[in-house]
Amino acid sequence: MSKLISIKNVSVSFRDHIALHNISIDIRKGAFVSVIGPNGAGKTTLLTVINGLGRILSGTVEVFGRKARPLNINKIRKRIGYVPQQMAVDPRSPVSVKEAVSIGRFGIIGLLGKWTDSDEQKVENALDKVGISRLSEKPVGHLSGGEHQKVSIARALAQEPEIILFDEPTSNLDPKAQNDIIKLIERIYSEKKYTIIFVTHILSHIPHSCTDVVLMKKGRIVKSGNADDMLEQKILSELYDFPMQVSIVHGKKHFHAGHFHTGHSGRGDGNV
């Protein structure tokens, strides 16, 4: 399969803190890549390198076969959906759910472009796909955490991207909302076959459809490869510097940190 993203020798620093150390990785079209690792591993920074939100110190990033540069980064971004970590929205914000989702189309249309019926339909479809059509006229600040994440996913879908970047979309959500979001991501992947990069620090939130796993620690890629091979007890224990246990119950992988059970659900491939 063709390479969609190619990151070569990329370093990123925030002042004197090096967030990414000379990392290199290729991601093929249609892959579902989960990026895992402890806090401060550089997972979110890796996502921002791909869509150009983060500024790189050295190295090169190629997306869709084009080297990402300040002059062409907007063109690249239009083809990448981005679902950020849950963000705070002022409850009095004068923006409706539908308007917040429509933002996904604005970049595609471009400055002075015309908003057409087709754009309207794409926004409606995105709202429908994530199941929040009934909330479309509601102020976006009035939503729950799970609904907020659905708005972000709908915005990414409205963009009709080729890649979607998920940055810990399940963090700070209650178990039901977490489950809803994971199922939604699974469904989007199975229907659309977008290339997905999914960042999480909660192993039990890695979706079942995940094909590849990238393990990060202290700004470096420690290991990467097939999901089944990477989600192994020994590898995970080394990654987190903590004894991790992996058990399979009813064909689903469950992850435990030492004696403390952390998993609410797990991967259901049962092949390991």
Binding site: L53, P84, M87, V95, A100, I103, I108
Partner: peptide, 16 residues
């Protein structure tokens, strides 16, 4: 409107 809503989201959507 997009910039007023959230600058990062506007940027990530390809808006200048």
């Amino acid at each position: 409107m997009a910039v007023l809503f959230n600058r990062d989201i506007a940027k990530a959507s390809g808006i200048p």
